[in-house]
Amino acid sequence: MTSIQSTARKRSTPTRPGDRIFRGTSVAAALTILATLAGVALFLTVEGIPGVLASPDEVKHGTTFIDYVVPLVFGTLLAAVLALAMAIPVAIGVALYISHYAPRRLAATLGYVIDLLAAVPSVVYGVWGISFLATALVPVYGWLERTLGFIPLFAGPASATGRTILTASIVLAVMVLPVITALCREIFLQTPRLHEEAALALGATRWEMAKLAIFPYARSGIISASMLGLGRALGETMAVAMVLSASGVITVNLISSTNPSTIAANIALTFNEATGLTVNALIASGLVLFLLTFLVNFAARAIVERRKDFSGAN
């Protein structure tokens, strides 16, 4: 074994300077990525730790870091989960429409139209959310409070501006919709044609064919697409920062004027006025967000990897 490797190495010795330089540059670029990520983790930790350890009277928010960050984590998760609950069914429907229901010639164009949603900058979503959507939803929230007020989610009192966590979640849902749709569409289109035809040959209707051939094949793909959408929703900053009128509480009341904030929005809103250890606390909260999204994305990738083993595709 060792002799084999040594002869192999000896054989490849006469390399040209051009090859050495080019290869070296490529490796260096790849290592830069490693260094960058190490840097992100390292700098956020180094700058964040003082913020975690700071006593309540040293920081603007006046609480320990745990008390500070828990409501933010709650708000982040609440907004993201609500957004996904709205986005996933619609995304699956849209993906199915484009891949199997729309006329063949239109499908590519329709896919492009949905992709346009992903191209809209988040600040434009914010402007739209704050000045159009929030206002438009005020009467809806009033109606929700009157008719469904017995459910804690809609207990009210309904916000007069419409800038609630539900509005923020709707904007988030629109933002992650194209992400989930694009991935689901890809997976639906990859469904083996033979399975589909086998189902149709058994006399299945189009919907029965979808249940028999498409969904079993695409299930893990849908899950991982949703997880990636979740990662996106957790980290989205500006739309939430602009739309939400936040007060840093923990509540499940979705339509009132007191709402939990999210980590990302909180950083964006308070960073510019923050000084001293408050900045460190904000950086620490950013690290928490980083870990949260990392976990979600990691889980999504793991599902994708496992699926690869089963489908036999490479």
Binding site: I33, G39, S122, G231, G235
Partner: peptide
């Protein structure tokens, strides 16, 4: 790592 990097929230990139 490129996959991990794809998932970095934009605000975290700013903090970095």
């Amino acid at each position: 790592l490129v996959d991990v990097m794809t998932g970095i929230p934009s605000i975290v990139a700013g903090l970095f």
